[in-house]
């Protein structure tokens, strides 16, 4: 995979409320280009919402989002999202399209590629996740692990500068988790900038460069994995780690 020259992502003072529910209460997050940041924390802490705010699927009430040091809040949000790939817990593949069409839809409609060009690129992308032979299958006929790998290929096809993973392995059967995590680790070591919301503490510790622990809409602690996992400073993080480890 080619090294990508951009992708440093920063969220500053992000706030978001749904009615009286204050979901994000001033989040700061900085992900240096080519590094992997994992976000951990209990359910309902706002981790998944944070990802959606960072790519403006949900607009923040307050705060700023910077890509390569430049605020993107004034840009067209659709164009911002073309630069950020996203992978979901439930895969969200398009069930009415073939695997290949899932990967090529954005290439054709957003990048304006010809059918041939998109097909070549789509097949190459599927090859990368080991599913070229499933190009003509429907997502419904694939295992969960295969579907998630197609979803990763779909996001990568747009050559994103940053990849978001929203609990990408939480809906998978235990025996399928490893393959998807390995693929994510490969991406990380190939230099992709990644933000990974996860409950996989092993992945968080071994693959990520920084770990951010969120609880109740705030960042409680963040730092390198060793500091977070071996030397937690707050009671909240200590009790969270004792619950999940």
């Amino acid at each position: 995979m080619k090294a990508i020259e951009s992708g440093t992502l920063t969220g500053r003072g992000l706030h978001l409320s749904f009615g009286s529910n204050h979901v994000l209460r001033g989040i700061d997050l900085h992900v240096e280009r080519g590094t992997t940041a994992s976000v951990i924390g209990p359910s309902g802490s706002g981790k998944s919402t944070l990802l959606r705010v960072l790519n403006r699927l949900i607009e923040p009430d307050q705060g700023d989002i910077l890509l390569d040091g430049r605020s993107v809040l004034k840009d067209n949000p659709d164009e911002l999202r073309r630069r950020i790939g996203m992978v979901f817990q439930q895969f969200n593949l398009f069930p009415h399209k073939t695997v290949l069409e899932n990967v090529t839809l954005a290439l054709r409609k957003l990048r304006g590629m010809s059918a041939d060009e998109a097909r070549r690129k789509g097949l190459a992308q599927l090859d990368l996740v080991g599913l070229k032979h499933k190009a003509d299958a429907r997502p419904g006929n694939l295992s969960g692990g295969q579907q998630q790998r197609v979803a990763i290929a779909r996001a990568l096809a747009m050559d994103p500068e940053v990849m978001f993973f929203d609990e990408a392995t939480s809906a998978l059967d235990p025996e399928l988790v490893k393959g998807v995590l390995a693929l994510m680790a490969d991406l990380a070591s190939a230099g992709m900038t990644m933000v990974v919301v996860t409950h996989e503490m092993g992945f968080s510790r071994n693959v990520s460069d920084t770990v951010t622990f969120m609880d109740a809409g705030v960042v409680v602690e963040s730092g390198p994995p060793a500091a977070i996992f071996d030397d937690p400073r707050t009671d909240r993080l200590r009790s969270f780690l004792s619950d999940v480890l």
Binding site: D78, M86, N92, F94, P95, A106, K109, L110
Partner: peptide
């Protein structure tokens, strides 16, 4: 149609209208 379909399409960079036209409505009609 599951909310995730619209979300995934928008996450790729499609506008609301294109997402509905290309992904959500075809599934709903079916």
């Amino acid at each position: 149609v599951e909310k995730g379909q619209l979300e995934a399409t928008r996450a790729l960079g499609f506008s609301y209208g294109s997402s509905m036209r290309l992904v959500v409505i075809p599934q709903g009609v079916r």
